[in-house]
Simulated assay, not measured.
Amino acid sequence: MRLVGCEPAEPLLAVLRRPRKWDRDWVGLRALDRTGRVMYRHNVYLRVETARPSVLGGSLLDIKLTDGGKDRPSLLARPIWETWWRGVPATRNRWAPLTAEGRSEWLDLTATGMSEQGPDRSGGFYHLDGTYVTDVPGLHCAMAEALAGPGGYYGREWNAFKDCLHGGFGVAAPFTLIWCDADVARQALADDIWDTEKGLTYFEEIVLILESFGVTVVLR
């Protein structure tokens, strides 16, 4: 990777001054949508190979980086990033045609805006469209859309979902969740046993968590 026209600010200069044996460092990559909003953050480890005066002139530097390692965004993310590049999705179920891996990538993008969801609201009714909840990532995509709207964040997996229920993510209990077509998830996750001692599936565990936080769950 060649970066053209880097400003030689002190954090960069400190890296360039280090001995070669310590020259491997992490770089924060930010993917922006067409409005300039950060839609994804990713840290990757890179090595500075060369740093030369920039072709752009002035005090700027051109820097060559190599050795990013294996921790890179999946190629599955590309079409999803292209969708989000146009802006945060405004309609529901845009994630529905994706594979489970693609849905996980979708959830990663929702997490970028988790701090923008405003103060908590409690009470009221929320409708979850269970038509496409055929896997665990799909469950969390649908749950986030039900509680935080299209493109919203409400956890990417079990632990994060439970954290969201404690508050701070736009919706706090008590409230009523009406889960439409709940049998789709019940059947699709029938073999996904989450609590081995009690024999509970992931679907059943999510319902119990909601109820334990004071959420009224209506399965339809």
Rank of each mutant, 00 (worst) to 15 (best):
D33E: 11
P53F: 05
S115C: 10
V184I: 14
G58R: 08
W106L: 07
G138H: 00
I209M: 12
E116Y: 10
P19H: 02
L200K: 15
K70C: 13
G87S: 06
L29T: 06
G5K: 08
F125V: 14
L177W: 05
G69F: 07
G214L: 02
D163G: 03
Y132P: 00
T99G: 13
V136D: 06
L65C: 04
R94V: 05
P73Y: 04
G57A: 04
G57L: 05
D23I: 02
T134C: 09
W85L: 11
D129T: 09
P150E: 06
R34E: 15
D120T: 06
L3R: 03
R186S: 07
I206C: 11
R94N: 04
W22K: 15
T131M: 04
E116P: 05
R17I: 04
P11G: 02
A51D: 08
A96N: 06
S122V: 01
L12T: 04
E10N: 10
W85H: 12
D183K: 09
T196V: 15
P174T: 07
P11R: 03
V215A: 01
R2T: 04
P73I: 05
W22Y: 11
L16I: 05
P119A: 04
E7V: 08
E82W: 04
A144P: 06
A77W: 00
T112I: 09
K70S: 14
A14N: 12
G118M: 02
M114P: 02
P79Q: 09
G5F: 03
W158C: 05
W158G: 01
R2P: 01
W95I: 01
V48T: 08
